[in-house]
Structures are given as C-alpha cells and as structure tokens.
C-alpha cells in the first residue's frame, strides 16, 4: 500500500512541485491550501508524513505544528516545516517539526528529508 503525504501549501505551483517530488518517491499526495482545521484534515487523510508551509492562511504553519504535535493521535506523524521566510531557520528550530527546509530548496534535499523520516519509502 502506498504511503501518503499531506501537503499544506497555499501557493498552488509550489504545492504541485512538492507533490511531484513526493509522487516520484512513490507517495500518494493530498493537498490543503489552508490551516483552519488541521486536526480534521489529518484525521481525514491519515498521512504518513506532513509537509507544512509557514505563511499559510488559517492558524499558520508554526501553530498548526504545535497543535498536531500536542495531539496524541497525530503527535507521531513526522512533519517537515518549510518556508521562504528570511529568518526561517531560527523559527523552525523553535518549532516542534521533525525537520525543516528553506525555500527555494533543491528537490534532492526534500527527497533526502522525506526518505530519512520515512525510511521504507518507495525509492
């Protein structure tokens, strides 16, 4: 059975790009363009891994990650935090994300992080 990635990204072109990268790793991809209801989104999709943008409508990436990581049913799902924010590294390190990557990124770096967090991904 395919593993699933849930991508929270409001820029459609970026979401599409990340989706292609994940698909090439054998993932099934689901998208959300807002973060008003991450708990129910994650409950609905049951992803194996989450890719979370920072500046995104709704609660935003940072708070959404806190929420997911503080909720027992979603706390174990690895989350990659990514953003084009200038001072993102500092923010990401104080977040509860499992990994972070700064935009613009190399697709091989994103692949590397996904494979590290989901070792048995299909590649």
């Amino acid at each position: 059975m395919k593993k699933k990635i849930l991508i929270f990204e409001d820029d459609l072109a970026t979401a599409e790009l990340a989706g292609i990268v994940a698909e090439q790793l054998g993932f099934e991809v689901a998208y959300r363009i807002r973060t008003d209801s991450v708990l129910s989104d994650v409950a609905a999709e049951s992803p194996h891994i989450i890719l979370m943008d920072n500046w995104i409508p709704g609660d935003g990436g940072f708070d959404s990650i806190q929420l997911l990581k503080n909720t027992p049913t979603t706390a174990d799902i690895p989350i990659i935090f990514y953003s084009a924010n200038t001072d993102f590294a500092g923010l990401a390190q104080t977040s509860m994300a499992d990994a972070y990557i700064t935009k613009p990124f190399d697709i091989t770096d994103l692949e590397g992080i996904i494979k590290r967090l989901i070792p048995d991904s299909n590649m």
Binding site: D11, V21, A84, N85, K103, P104
Partner: peptide, 18 residues
Amino acid sequence: ASHEMKTPITVVKGNLQL
C-alpha cells in the same frame, strides 16, 4: 518582499531540476 520573490523562484528552481 523577499518571501514573495522566493516563492516563484522555488517553483522555477524545482521545475528546472525536474
């Protein structure tokens, strides 16, 4: 401004790598 500029650059860079 820098965030907004990096967004299309992310897309261009990723697509060129693909």
